[in-house]
Every structure is written in structure tokens, then in C-alpha cells.
Design a protein around this nucleic acid. Structure first.
Lengths: 247, 247
DNA sequence: CGACATCTTGACTACAGTCAATACTAGTGG
DNA sequence: CCACTAGTATTGACTGTAGTCAAGATGTCG
């Protein structure tokens, strides 16, 4: 709770997401204008950032930590529709209410921009709109990949797909291009995984056990995962096991 | 095949999608520049516009007709990830290959822009980038709504959801805000519906029959659908049956 | 009419869901 | 230190929804 990491950077120059977030293409003078309308907010693991339908007077970027976007039906069925990692953008310029529940699944730091001035800046600053377009197109691709997973994959393939997505993003973010077994901590509970994959938590648990039994993954505790053989995992996910990289 | 409608408009001024497509915000001079790099292409129902992975030297808008975006796994499982109606945009500036199969499900007219000059124009013309961002955000919302359908709804709810989406779009496009029963022709085969919904075509057929038996829909032939009671259909879809409108 | 697409219906199966008991872990307080 | 609790995860037994395989109906076009 008093983790010193759970606080914003001093200025944009030091910011860990400076070159990946919506501000990636901004020049120094543009950054200065952004600094005027930005502020940091922190959330503890489990806290709700905003509820679907609530008015939202900011947009912003995840600086550190992980958040989820979920949709809920009246009878309680839930579907996660987005997994937000550092540098991902939250909110939609031009819309007043939040469309989805946003929940911090780990301690979270967000860099928020007051919505009105941000919208104004977007009109005046092509660098921001261009970068936001690029990020939105990436998200759309991710959502479509997710549609294939949800619509056509088996429970086992779904789990393998989720693990490979997390492994891949983790590898990209921190230790790009290392050989050997991948190791990471799952940032999601079994329940969150089930919300993501359109499964029940029991099925998630069973398939995790099955993948462990079959040597596709190794588990230490509930969350610490080792992938001894990534191509094997990708094959289990039903993906092209070949060169398989992102664009 | 020789339908006179299956050919492009003379100029942008006459264009039926002038005010909804990626060019919606363009001024007259901007339109003129676009005219220089645009050309029309027509496709017959069933034709493939482009295969996933193929190089793509254009981007463009659907002028009339309907196309689908689908993703296919090696073993043949297929998932539709987008339904393209008039004014929808195809292709991604900055990417060389097509990410998905694009197939015309009806006779189709597309307004294509040569990719390189279009990308250049996008950098110079904020009106285009702004509109494209807005459209991409809309598509992302639609994709996320689809994730809920794919991940959490029953077969019956999925069918009802698809029918209500088509009914709603149809109503918006042509006869906005009319009272009484909605009537439309399904632009999709049972197989395409199953690809959309992550079901088999047998299940689609069974649930269509069930909805008909229960009086939720009326069918004349295989494709002509009447919705006597839209709120009832929305309830079957698991959506809020209340005011339920789009943003 | 006959051939082929598309669609419907039936019988059976299998995968994931449901309900329920039990295990593991971390935190709290006696 | 241990007992107690609460949250999270695992496993088992059984059920039900949608998938599979197959036959037959409907519709369209040459």
C-alpha cells in the first residue's frame, strides 16, 4: 500500500511510458501543454476506477499496474473486454459516460488528463490524434483476435492463448528477446481469467491443472508460471507455431 | 450481375455515403484531392475482396452492399470479426498486408484509395484522421459488444442479438424511427450467421426455428424476417429492454 | 426435370457448466 | 503459537447445451 512505485513520475521526461503512450509523438512544447492538464491518480488492487455509465471527466494512460475493462449483464454474467497494461489508454474523447467498468487488478498508477482540455488539444495537435488512432487500431486488432478465441477455441486452447498473450506482452515490455524458458506472474485471479475467456472459474482451474500435468506449463504456487517451451504453448493455443511474431 | 446500382456514383457530391464515410468531414478542396486517388471496384456476391496476408495496395469504403471480415484457423474453424455496411472502412493505413479475409456477401461497390497517397493525405489532412479515429472507436465498441455475445450469451440469445443488431442498423440507415413491426431481409446465410456467432449452422437453424415457433420472429422463406415486437426481441437477446438506443 | 446450394430436423455425443465438498494461503486475534 | 476466518483455488460427480453425424426437405437455376 505504501509502495513507493505506486506514485507518478516527477515529469514527462522521466515517465516510463513516455514513448509508448498517447503522448509518444509529442514534442517538448506539446508535452508542456499536456503537463498543465494532467494529474496522477493511484488505485489499490481491487479498487474500481470507474463504473460503466458513470460520468467521466478525464481520460488517461496506465502508467504502472494492470486494469481490466468488463461488461456486465443484468443477471450478473460478466465478460472482460480489455486488459490494460502500462501505456494503454482509458476513456473515449467525445463521450461523457464510461462504457465499461474499469477495475485495478494490481496497484495502479494512472496519468489522467482533464477531458475537455484534452479534447481541445486533440483538435489542435495532430501528433496526439495520430498516436491515438494507431493505438486504437491496435486495440481493435486485439479485440478481433479475442473474438476468435471466444467464438471458436476450446477451453484448453483459450487458456493457452491467454498465457501466451501475457507471456508475449511481458517479454516485449521488459526483457525483450531473451532465450530460454519464460517466467512470469499471472496478474489475474482464476475468476478474472474466466471473465476474460468466457469460461467458468472451475473450467479455468481444471485446464490449468491439465496443462501443468501435461508439462506445457509449470506452476509454483497459484500465480507463478514458467513456460519451458513457448512453441509448444503456441501449438496448444491453436496459433501458428511458426515464426509467430507481432507486427 | 448487371444491376445498374452495382456501379459507383459519378462524383463525391452524389455519393450516398458522403456524410458517413471516412471523408465525412472533408471540405470541397479536400474531396477534390481524394477524387484524384480514388477508383471504384465492384464485386459479386460471394467474391473474395482480399485474402488475409495478401499485400493490399488500397484502403477504402463500402459504398453499397455488405462485406464480412473473417479469420480462419489452420484446421478450418472460422470466426467473423466484422460486418461491413455502407460507409464502413476497409484496410489499415500503415499496414501492408490484409489482416483478415474480406468477402462480399452481397453485390458490393467499394470506393478505393491508393494506399500510399492516402497515407500521405492522412498526415496532411486532420479531417480525415479525425473521422477515421471516430469510426475506429465505434468499431472497437462494436467489437467489444461482440465479445460479450461470443463469451457469455446462449445460442438463443446470440441469434436474437444478431437479429436485433441487423434490425437496428437497417432501421437507422433507411427508415429512421418508424413505428410498428420491423421487416428486413437477412443479408447472411445460416453459415455466415454461425461464423458470426461462434455456433454451428445446425444450431443457428434450430434456434431460428425456435424463435419462430415462439412468435419472437416471423419468417417468410429463409431470409425475410419480421419482428412484430422489438422489445420482446431485445429481451430475448439479454439486452436492457428499456429505452435501449445507441449513443 | 434434375442438380446443387441451402436449410431443417433428428438421434446421439461430448465439452463445459453447475453444484458441492475440500484444500490451500494469508491475515486476525485470543 | 495456534485457532479461526475469509478469500482463492482445486477436484469430483452429475447435468445440460451445443456439437457432430446423418437423412431429408426446400429452393433456385440451367
Amino acid at each position: 500500500m505504501k509502495d513507493p512505485k505506486a506514485t507518478g513520475p516527477q515529469s514527462c521526461e522521466d515517465c516510463p511510458i513516455r514513448h509508448r503512450a498517447v503522448c509518444a509523438r509529442c514534442e517538448t512544447d506539446e508535452l508542456e501543454k499536456l503537463e498543465d492538464i494532467k494529474y496522477y491518480r493511484t488505485f489499490e488492487a481491487g479498487q474500481t476506477v470507474i463504473w460503466a455509465g458513470d460520468p467521466m471527466d478525464f481520460v488517461g494512460s496506465v502508467v504502472s499496474g494492470i486494469a481490466t475493462l468488463t461488461q456486465t449483464m443484468e443477471d450478473g454474467r460478466r465478460q472482460m473486454v480489455g486488459l490494460l497494461l502500462p501505456s494503454d489508454f482509458v476513456g473515449r474523447p467525445g463521450r461523457d459516460g464510461a462504457a465499461y467498468d474499469v477495475v485495478a487488478t494490481t496497484d495502479l498508477v494512472m496519468c489522467c488528463f482533464r477531458k475537455k482540455p484534452f479534447e481541445k488539444m486533440m483538435m489542435e495537435t495532430p501528433h496526439i490524434a495520430q498516436r491515438l488512432l494507431e493505438m486504437t487500431l491496435d486495440e481493435l486488432d486485439a479485440a478481433r483476435e479475442w473474438m476468435l478465441i471466444l467464438g471458436r477455441k476450446t477451453a484448453r486452447e483459450k487458456i493457452a492463448s491467454l498465457l501466451s498473450i501475457i507471456a508475449r506482452r511481458d517479454a516485449t515490455l521488459q526483457l525483450a528477446g531473451m532465450r530460454g524458458p519464460l517466467v512470469f506472474d499471472l496478474p489475474l485471479t482464476r475468476e478474472a481469467m474466466s471473465d476474460y475467456l468466457g469460461l467458468t472459474l472451475e473450467t479455468v482451474s481444471r485446464q490449468m491443472s491439465a496443462l501443468k500435468r501435461d508439462g506445457v506449463i509449470e506452476l509454483e504456487g497459484k500465480r507463478h508460471v514458467t513456460i519451458p517451451d513457448l512453441p509448444r504453448l503456441l501449438e496448444e493455443a491453436g496459433d501458428d507455431a511458426d515464426g509467430g511474431m507481432m507486427a
